Computed example of a mutant assay.
Amino acid sequence: MCVLCGLLLNVMAVLNTGTMVDGVAAAVGREPILQSEVIEEAGAELQSLRDSGLAPGELERQADAALRRALDRLIEYKLVYREAAGKKIEIPEKQIERRVTAIRRQYPSQEAFLKALADSGRTVDTLRDEVRKQMTALLFARAKRRQFEQEVAVTEEDIRRYYEENTEQFHHGPRVRARRIFVAAGRDPESRQEARKRAEDILDRLRKGADFAQTALDESDGPEAEDAGMMGWIQGDSLVPALRDALAQLEPGQLSDIIETDFGYHILLLEERQEAGEISLEQARAEIEPLVRRQKSDERYQRWVNTLRQQADVAAGMGAGPEQIIQRFDPVARHHDLVDDMVGAQCPKR
C-alpha cells in the first residue's frame, strides 16, 4: 500500500503547485507505470474532487478510488497495446496534441508542467509517444468490444430477467435521454480561450450535419465519450443546474448552444423526452436488448483483459511491495532515483 500512500500525498501537491516526487506505481513486464502517469490519467476526477468541498477523510477515500481506477486503466492500456502492436492503427496527430494539451492544463503553468515531466524522466516527446500508445490501445479495445457485441447472443429469457430484476428503471418520473460532448478547460484564461474555440469549432461542424455520436467518440473529453456521448436517461437533479436548465429548453433532436461550467464547455443533444410512467416489457424490449448485449460483451471483454493480465508479468504497487516491483526493472529505471523513492519512503499505517 506504500505506493498508494505516496500517490495520495502527491495528488494535492500536483494540483496546487504542479510539483511532486515521482515513483513507480506498477509494472507490466519490465515497463514501469509512474505515479505521475497515474495522476495525469486521473486528472479530471482529481480536479473535480479538489473543488468539491469534501471533508478530508472523504476526499482521501474518493481520491484513493480514482487513483485505483486510473492505475487499472493504465495497466489495461499497456496490455492491450501489446496485442495491438504490429496492427496498422493510425492516430491523427491532432488527437495526440489535444490529449497532451489536456494533460498540460492539469498544471498551473507551462513551467510546472515541464518540471513535472523532467522530474519523472520524461520529455514532451516521450509524453506524446505514451499518448499515442494509449490511443492505439483504446482504438484496438473499441474494435474488440464491437467484435464481442456482434458475437454474443441475447435471448428472450435474458431480456425478461433484466426487466424483472430492474423494475425501478421502468417506473420513472419525467426524464430525458441525451448525449453530450465535453471540452475540458483549465482555470487560466488562455486555456479557457483555447477550449472555447475548440467547442465552437465542434458546434459549427455539428450544425453543418456532422454525426453527434461519432463526433463525441472523436472529440469529447467526457467520461461518456466511449459510449458516443450517451448520458442515458436523466431525471431529477442528477445534473448540474446549467446542464439541466439547457436540456429543459430543448426539443428532441435539437442541439444546445455551448454551455460553460467551471470544468469546461458542453454541447448537448436531446434525443427523447418522456413523462412519468411505467414501461411494459414489450415497450422496454428495444431498450433492454442493447443493454444486455453491452453487459454480456463487457463481461467477455473483461475476461479477455484478465487473461492478458494473467499471461503477463504484472505487479501493481497497490498490491505488491516496492521491492517486488523494482526488481523487475533494468538499470535504466534506477537512473531516475525511483528506487530510493520507493524503498526509502515510509508511509503511515492507515
Score class of each variant (00 low, 15 high):
Tyr301Ala: 03
Arg309Gln: 07
Ile159Tyr: 08
Phe170Pro: 12
Ile259Val: 12
Arg309Leu: 01
Glu190Trp: 00
Glu168Tyr: 13
Asp119Ile: 05
Arg294Glu: 11
Arg179Tyr: 03
Ile234Tyr: 07
Gln302Trp: 15
Asp72Thr: 13
His171Ile: 13
Pro223Cys: 03
Arg293Glu: 10
Leu74Glu: 15
Val183Leu: 05
Arg145Asn: 05
Leu247His: 08
Asp188Ser: 14
Asp201Asn: 05
Val314Glu: 05
Arg285Thr: 12
Ala137Asn: 00
Gly236Gln: 14
Arg244Gly: 12
Ala242Glu: 15
Leu74Lys: 13
His172Phe: 14
Tyr301Phe: 13
Glu168Pro: 05
Val305Arg: 08
Ala84Arg: 04
Ser36His: 03
Glu83Leu: 14
Ala286Thr: 12
Ala225Asp: 12
Pro189Met: 11
Gly53Ile: 13
Ile96Met: 06
Pro252Cys: 04
His336Phe: 15
Ala184Asp: 00
Arg350Phe: 11
Leu203Ser: 08
Thr155Met: 02
Gly121Ile: 04
Glu165Asn: 09
Arg198Gln: 15
Glu151Gly: 02
Asp337Tyr: 02
Ala70His: 08
Leu139Lys: 05
Gln106Met: 12
Arg160His: 06
Arg82Pro: 01
Phe170Ser: 08
Ala112Asn: 10
Arg180Phe: 04
Thr123Asp: 00
Met1Val: 12
Ser109Asn: 12
Ala185Ile: 10
Val131Cys: 06
Pro108Arg: 13
Gly6Ala: 06
Arg294Cys: 01
Phe329Asn: 08
Gly264Arg: 00
Val339Tyr: 00
Leu49Val: 02
Ala65Asp: 15
Ala225Gly: 07
Arg122Asp: 15
Ala286Cys: 01
Ala210Phe: 00
